[in-house]
Amino acid sequence: MNLMYVPAIAMVAIFMLYPLVQGIGLAFTNWDGYSPTKAFVGLDNFARLFTDATFQTALVNTLIYGIGCTVLQQVLGLGLAVALDGAGRSKAFARALIYLPVLVSPVVMTMMYYFLFQYDRGALNDILVSVGFDRIAWLSTGPGTVTIVVLINTLQFVGISMVIYLAGLQGIGQEITEAAEVDGARGLRLFRSITLPLLRPAIISSVIINLIGGLKLYDVIQVLTAGGPGYSSHSVSTLIARSYFGQQAAGYASAMGVALFVLIAVVSIFLVARMDRTGKDL
């Protein structure tokens, strides 16, 4: 019977585990990505991570993408879930439209957002001009581009948080809310002391999904400015591809890959451990 999972394990071993292990090996070499030879350089690549200003920018950006998107998505997702909880055709229609971008390729979504932020015919600049301001080159600075990337990714996937919180709200029985109301809890107080604590499992699973998604972010950045202007909006993911394909730094790119994997693994394990504890609390 156990033979039945051999194909799955073989695929995971060949196409994920083997590259992962080999990547760790390559991270200790100066391989350029095509020569038959490579030299062992010890921890040089990892040491370089600590001094390379470009990588540091990418790492900080990765954290901004991860944490920034996650925070915004929880606030907006929870707000939308509370506003759209309950029956009614118009609410169902609104939920369907807000969820729609989740299904669209991030590549396509970013292309569509470009029409809003582009300089010359940008829809946002059209509004600015029509009320008497000058055009703004939204994508010409690092912080501007990073902000817009956070915004695009947040809005595209806010629907996932919304749906998770909607399911969470449905899970809180009417009885609990009503009992609390009988005890005199209303409005914000009811929300803070009853609804929010009961939503904890929903909050944690939504945070895990959004945070891992944000820390892995690649598509939006690659399509919007390919990490530009300069290197200012790179995430670790886009910088790996750039170093490998653009600068033939395969060894160094592998070291970045290892660093990114460790970052995501540590964050995920920490959050999953918290989720298990929550399960026992309840």
């Binding site: 995971v12 994920m16 585990l17 083997y18 590259p19 992962l20 080999q22 990547g23 390559l26 990505g33 891992i212 820390l215 892995k216 690649y218 670790v236 993911s237 886009t238 790996i240 591809a241 490998y244 395969a250 790119a253 592998s254 970045m256 890959g257 290892v258 990114l260 994997f261 995501i264 693994a265 995920s268 394990i269």
Partner: peptide, 12 residues
């Protein structure tokens, strides 16, 4: 394996 970012295994 869900924790492995695809880009981290891109090179190998």
């Amino acid at each position: 394996m869900l924790m492995v970012p695809p880009l981290s295994i891109l090179v190998p």
